[in-house]
Design a protein around this nucleic acid. Structure first.
Lengths: 176, 176
DNA sequence: CATATTGTTTAGTATGAACTAAACGTATTA
DNA sequence: TAATACGTTTAGTTCATACTAAACAATATG
């Protein structure tokens, strides 16, 4: 392949790997997505092994994770029994997938913990301290709930079009 | 202390520790914030050591990190040379702090990597593939830029009041 | 000046997660 | 049926990071 292009691709893939790591995913996962994303043709597992320099096992598990998140799609090539993969290019959709898959579960757990702690305060001996706890925990619970509802509402927006409307709204309501 | 209350507090702190871990911060950091957040009085380093069962060194570094993020504030008690800490209770402000401190830097790096990769495509031999790369990388760059501007605009909103307005707007523009 | 009180720094340790290498299961083909 | 071509699973290794324990620096106090 063209040297210019492969250098650029390497740089890009490296960047994806870094981003992936930053968001708490394995480095290889980002790299693999990057490779698939930059390929005009569906890629097989072996081609990925070659392009990302990672063993088959790692590619296998990472690509499966990518699929679960809706970041890549399996593409069955008739006549071949290999699995091929193509990239999901709708990043908005991807964001939704990740949010749903990952934040939700752990986020709910967090919210529950706070609620549970609040419930434990019910029949406490020290009413003053209990009141203080209630206030604090309640405030945090409220914040999480707000955050949750905002995020989930934003996630309902269908496309980036509505996002620009959102931005306009935000700018217009910004009084600072 | 009241047994009810200390159980509830333990549960809460444990939850904070978990959340902290989820967001990519040390577990102890969340626990420490939780302890400070639930204390009516400013807490000293030694008190924190006792309450979260972590060594002084760890508390020292973690509490400093918390301060950098604007999650706690040093409170100098006249007459004592200990450092006391109180919790920042404006979660909106905290979110801003974290976003600014952390996402921004790493996020910018990510954006730069994509831009750099794009620049490398300029004089490539294979115009067809180069075109494809440009298209893909450009799309990703666009997404990141949009995301960046949305987040940064949202972060300009001063308080949770405007958030509820935001929610109303979102619900009203949701056609799905 | 010696001692105590505080917070920080450092060297070493433990833990968890991601990867490698290789065995494995399963289907396909010769 | 043997051999090949896949993808998956597993056991072990590597690596990063958060922690502990203890030395340390700085300041105050007797």
């Amino acid at each position: 392949m063209d040297n210019q292009l492969s250098t650029a691709r390497g740089h890009f893939i490296q960047g994806m790997s870094r981003i992936s790591n930053f968001w708490g995913f394995p480095r290889a996962m980002g790299a693999i997505y990057g490779a698939i994303y930059l390929s005009p043709e569906p890629l097989s597992l072996d081609e990925l092994v070659e392009q990302v320099s990672v063993t088959k096992g790692a590619v296998s598990t990472n690509v499966r994770q990518l699929e679960r998140l809706g970041m890549v799609h399996k593409h069955i090539q008739l006549g071949s029994r290999k699995d091929f993969y193509i990239a999901e290019t709708d990043f908005w959709k991807i964001a939704k997938g990740i949010l749903r898959e990952r934040e939700q579960s752990e986020f709910d757990a967090a919210l529950n913990t706070v609620s549970e702690s609040l419930d434990m305060l019910d029949e406490a001996d020290d009413p003053e301290l209990a009141g203080f706890y209630k206030e604090r925990m309640g405030a945090m619970q409220g914040f999480f709930q707000t955050l949750d509802s905002v995020v989930s509402t934003i996630m309902k927006l269908e496309n980036l079009m509505s996002l620009s409307a959102l931005q306009k709204f935000i700018s217009s309501s910004d009084k600072s």
